[in-house]
Design a protein around this nucleic acid. Sequence first.
DNA 1: TGATCTTGCAAAAACGTACCTCTTGACGCT
DNA 2: AGCGTCAAGAGGTACGTTTTTGCAAGATCA
Lengths: 359, 359
Amino acid sequence: MSRSTGRRLGRAGIRDVAAAAGVSITTVSDALNGKGRLPDATRRHVREVAERLGYRPSAAARTLRTGRSGLIGLTVTTYGDEPFTFTEFAYFAEMARAATSAALARGYALVILPATSRHDVWSNVALDGTVVIDPSDHDPVVSELVRQGIPVVSDGRPAGSLPVTAWVDNDHEAAVLGLLDHLSEAGARRIGLLTGTTTDTYTRLSTTAYLSWCERTGQDPVYEEYPAHDPCAGAMAADRLLARPDRPDAVYGLFDPNGTDLLAAARRYGLRIPDDLLLVCCSESNVYDNTEPPVTTLSLKPRRIGTAVVQLLIDAIEGLDAGGPTQQVIPTELIVRSSSRRRPPRTTVSAPRPPGDRS
Amino acid sequence: MSRSTGRRLGRAGIRDVAAAAGVSITTVSDALNGKGRLPDATRRHVREVAERLGYRPSAAARTLRTGRSGLIGLTVTTYGDEPFTFTEFAYFAEMARAATSAALARGYALVILPATSRHDVWSNVALDGTVVIDPSDHDPVVSELVRQGIPVVSDGRPAGSLPVTAWVDNDHEAAVLGLLDHLSEAGARRIGLLTGTTTDTYTRLSTTAYLSWCERTGQDPVYEEYPAHDPCAGAMAADRLLARPDRPDAVYGLFDPNGTDLLAAARRYGLRIPDDLLLVCCSESNVYDNTEPPVTTLSLKPRRIGTAVVQLLIDAIEGLDAGGPTQQVIPTELIVRSSSRRRPPRTTVSAPRPPGDRS
DNA sequence: TGATCTTGCAAAAACGTACCTCTTGACGCT
DNA sequence: AGCGTCAAGAGGTACGTTTTTGCAAGATCA
């Protein structure tokens, strides 16, 4: 019995198309992929037959043959066993969205993978490259990938001497310094910090920037730490910060939910914002547009980061990274809202604001 | 020249392991996969050699041979060309997170794919099955997948006669009816609706449930529509709803941002909540815990949905769906907060609440 | 003493594609 | 006529696994 007939249970293969079109497998492959030298008549004919048979090339076979899968890994940090920080904060959501979009535009798809080294999953998928979000110091996954020659681009500059192909990051120090200056100009005398206990680069750089600013300006540091993945702990830390004897008159919160938590804590202690307390937090969420009062936020521009990371990665995959910069710094944006704008002191008692007032 | 030597530029293949261990490739495969009948000594030896050579099996080759890729597609709806609703609202984020987690726990990874039929991407990745979020009426992608014999499970019951393998959904009608009853019991006389212009099942079912409730109770429907993907339009629609001459004394918003938008609009018109206006919106975001006042929300339990969808899909992929129910209804939860609890009328003027008051 | 069973492993056939090497005419040129 | 050239397409191999089949050597048994 012939190989090209009957046996196929499911989809049609390239052989079936070749047989039906009366040409060879090579011709079919060339016709569909736009390669080789074929007259347009043949090309059209083959395409037509393939369409009629509902032929879809096998991605697995193509990947095996070409060594390209068209898949990009996106690591998501995991806390504990099961849960994911993935989209825990709006930052990840936005960043992932932009990365997905950028990848798709260049014909790649994103695979979501856990940062913990679950070998059975990682080795079961053929990746052309990987995006790593904020890799920890000596990440075993990254080392392994690099050892295999797979390009790795990280969101957040790699800690230690992690040999990533490229990275994209904000200038966190500059952002924090600028923000503290902004608060200082608005009248803050003692600025507090709500930070995390984790050792990732973002937390570390932001905190040291705060400390060095304090040292430079002669202010005593006032800060509370908490495990960033626990929203309940965040609310409690916000409360602790405002309950201190040396209560700050301005606070910067490193994480997205800090804004609402600090607002709630301030209400509990009867603190008016911005009159008694200036408030800024790092967030991508637009809820701070509509809080009472609206809260000044620092945006890390996750969309630009996600896009840049993917572009750099695909360039590396396709070998287009000739001489280009291997890292990229994305500027941050301070979105100033009422919570950090101290009102002009002409009125001693705060009057109700007219609706729609943005000044 | 021998095939098993020299030629390999990159990673070690199964042949290299076999040669180094002095056994056949069959033995290596069996030893590493725990199949066949081999003495433990051989198994250990092979594993050791494989480890030493840094051997990683080729996912592409395995997929080609077994027909299983361990990959599950997750479609994300796209509006217009580039942007994604993916994680536009907290619902998607939570649902995707749960789905990822559930898939990983069973050894599968998720691939993010656009719902629009970009053939070049869809056909370039070997999927064992697909999760489709709220498929539209005669979705070409779904039909194509089903035709290829790939299991498809949808979040949201499929419109029309879409032949999905299984689906998971809430009972949206019951949820809306229960919620309207809740508002009615809280004293609402005219309940308004903020809804979408899109034709997806969620919007449609919720709206018709509202209309039928109105008909049953004899209330005139009061609603505003807007394209759900445009946050700016949402704020404007909220404003329109409260500006109507037949202004409602209670509002249900179908989408996540409606709560903050309605709060802002109410402030603009000087409406006190819940005194002048009762408020409920469908949301998974916990910001409504800390708004002023906290807003009652309807939760669709996206985590449970994401988990259920993936379980159903993997069961279908692995052929474990013997006789089991092909659809699953997840109960919703109404999280009642201050915005829909009319205060007891013993005090005519609202007094400031004590801190931490939750009643 | 075969006969049958079990153990431990090897050979080889797929899986479906892409690409490299050849063949076969047809044609032009000297 | 002989030669090179070029278009159009055929053949075959390799990608790296998994899996079926098979086979020799001991073990067990009547």
